[in-house]
Design a protein around this nucleic acid. Sequence first.
DNA 1: CCAGGGGTCCTTTTT
DNA 2: GGACCCCTGG
Length: 734
Amino acid sequence: MNAKASTAAPWLRGLNPEQRRAVQHTDGPLLVLAGAGSGKTKMLVHRCVHLVRGRGVEPGRILVVTFTNKAADEMRERVRTYAGDDAKDVMVSTFHSLGARILKLHAEKVGLPRRFAIYSGSDQLGALRQATQEISIDDDRFDLKRVLRRISDWKTRGVSPRGAREEVIASAATGTRADDYEVLAADAYGRYEEVLRACGAVDFDDLLLLPVKLLEEDEEVRRDTWRRWHYVMVDEYQDTNAVQLHMTRLLAGARRNVCVVGDDDQSIYAFRGADVGNILEFERHFEGTSVIKLEQNYRSTRRILEAANSVIAGNARRHDKRLRTENPIGAPIDYYEHDDDAAEADIIASELSLRHFRERRPWREFAVLYRANTQSRPIEEALRAKGIPYRVVGGQSYFDRKEVADGMAYLRAIAHPRDEIALRRIINYPSRGIGRVSIGKVADLARERNAGFAKTLRTADGELLGGAQAEAVAAFLEVMDGQRDALARAEELAKRPPPATGLPPIARWAMDLFKDVGLEDAIRADYRTAGTHDARLSNLRDLAGTIARYERRRWSELGTGVDRGDLALTAEDAPADPDAEEWRAPTLAEALSRLALADMDDEEDDAEAQDAVTLMTLHSAKGLEFDDVFLVGLEEGILPHARSIEGDDAALAEERRLLYVGITRARHRLTLSLCRRRRRGGDAVEVLPSRYLKDIPEELLNPKTAERMLSPEESADLRRDFFKNMKAMLEESA
DNA sequence: CCAGGGGTCCTTTTT
DNA sequence: GGACCCCTGG
């Protein structure tokens, strides 16, 4: 297609020549090196539209892979906006849900049940705890989280338990590292995998590893996959790890229509195995690659971009580039030094309300970004005190909250009889007289007989346990059996359309379950968490609400052919003839398998529509943009983080990129701040400004203090505006 | 044998 | 704010 014709194509309007070239390079490997704010997401979306409208590719043949659910949602939304129904079958998926999908279709080939459970957070810890207990290395201070990180390291590099042990032994033999801890971790790794399999479960790393294994070893899986997708695109490619590189290669297959987009300066996930080398050496991995660079920034003011450029210039190993922009110079970058984090939070809250009321800008245009989740607390407190609406993105994952994890464990223990980790989590919560010793006895016996824990539990009588304990176990089993029956009835009801109002049957059952087994009372009775009871109860009820949404979505999919969860991989004509797919009534087991991957992003749509300030980590902010950004805690020990300062140069380089990512989120306005004192452990300690601040040219910065934040006139204006706006708002809502 | 209270330590980033 | 351990009383 020549340049003239492309000008005529409506889907190419609004793209500059560089972007158009990228969009149109339709065959063979394509590497798009896209700077921050260069419109790379837009480019990917337009490429999808171009393939469908311009080249007549069936949308179902196009696969876009992202890292986060949020990115996938946004991409889907944009594809729909630009291409309408034409492109509704373009599949947008995260690496992990794609892996889950492939795995689900071939689960039996790797010895998994069709409805395998996906473990995260506390479940993984539970499995690992059991693994270490079984090989008796739980006695000394064995930091399970650290071991889990170590195991995950191995898994993201595709190293097997045996490989891990060899690696550890080899490094000990060469005297480089004779670390007992490593040996223990390698031993635990193997057993951990066995525990997972015995429970019919996988962890997040398996969602990448096992599909790769399948694709590698199984001709049929490969053939089906290649028949299904002809064009593969990967967003944020700089954050891929070894397994994801492998997966990308396998997905691309012989067609090699693979287009990856990324920015080496925004690689911030090395800690979980991401390798910038993947993007730096893409041309070597995929022979005959076309390379396109997007170096114009459309997002930020010149001052903001200059600050970002000066920060990132301090890193050595990178594609040399300097983003340019034609945007206006913009406002100076505000810079605050606060006494402590409370003062910092306070001023931010004041600035926010000032800018909101005085400049009449909606709350949603603002974001407060920080290095670690723990930094959100003082800010939340200050915003709450001033009545500023906010939402916290990420943080403790929804499923890691105790009450949610407990609720999930009940659901899983009922849905998956093999799920021993779930069972052991809830067997004595709420307390019902089955303590550590009794559980230990059953577990020992189970091991002796080489039988499952759940099965052995049924044989536990007054001889094995005390009389009272045996009775407690019997009562517990009775409750569980009763719940299974109730679930079966609910699933039977779920074969008919849900009621127009009220909860659909499975959700209804879950809600009752939480009440009947005493979870709700246990939350209310916990004196340690007084004050958070309502929030916890509502989190638990949200879980039932999520099941309700799943049930309704399932029913809305009937006959429409839209099936985001289980689009057949093998049916060759699936994209063309979606009705050919078999529709199934909702089940708890399926709800659970969707839930684990969905994160809770989907559920926050309502909150997102609300007008609220966004609080999140720099990591979560990648890929997003805001008019007005506050970047807090620019101190040694925070950014760069203390752990990275202890670490190597690579760790520090990543911290610098993190700051770069943060700065480049801002469109019009940026406020940097730090604290001179910060609480560490018990008391407040003096801290130093971040080393990276020196790299920002002084003339770009506008130092401010709390006193000078507002002139007296501005204060008066603010007060006046505040009441005026308040009045207007009240009238609007009336 | 179990439940619950009280003390202690730590706390990067995430699918 | 947690997760975890230890102690005491039932």
